[in-house]
């Protein structure tokens, strides 16, 4: 019973990703490359889906186009260039490491460095304050004065 539920659960969740049309491939390599492309190319219409997940008309057209280009014998780079020439770098879910996208790639590293600096500052400060916990003579004198001042004020009121 439990196994059945598990099977049902997985069967159902897999269906969600399935697209309608099926393509024939001459070789398993072409099939594998096709699946990489439809996973990594972004649908220009419904922007948070890749080509594999999208039902939009243009996504179906682009899947057909990827299939055709693969069988025309184009290399991976040529197919990416074909897509970028028409839809811009926007269609790449894995954008190139150059130009404006450089900021995106470097941002996590920058954040990490920033975080480390902050942590170091905090640690350093806490060490400094812990040294200060014992009062030297000057501090004692100053403290005494303050305390006397408070006592005098208390007497007046």
């Amino acid at each position: 019973m439990r196994l059945l539920f598990i099977a049902l659960f997985f069967g159902w969740s897999l269906n969600v990703n399935a697209v309608i049309e099926t393509y024939e491939f001459e070789t398993p390599e072409l099939r594998a490359r096709y699946h990489v492309f439809v996973e990594e190319l972004r649908c220009p219409k419904c922007q948070n889906q890749n080509l594999a997940d999208s039902n939009a008309g243009v996504a179906a057209d682009l899947r057909r186009e990827v299939h055709r280009l693969l069988h025309d014998g184009l290399s991976d780079q040529e197919i990416y260039d074909f897509m970028v020439a028409r839809y811009g770098e926007f269609v790449l879910y894995r954008p190139k490491t150059s130009g404006v996208t450089l900021y995106l790639w470097l941002a996590p590293l920058l954040m990490l460095v920033l975080a480390l600096v902050v942590v170091m500052l905090i640690v350093k400060r806490s060490q400094q304050t812990s040294h200060k916990e014992t009062l030297d003579n000057n501090d004692q004198v100053a403290l005494q004065k303050v305390l006397e001042g408070i006592e005098q004020q208390g007497d007046k009121s």
Binding site: P44, D61, L62, E65, R86
Partner: peptide, 8 residues
């Protein structure tokens, strides 16, 4: 349409 880069 794909050559034009249209989305719809």
């Amino acid at each position: 349409g794909i050559d034009l880069g249209i989305t719809g």
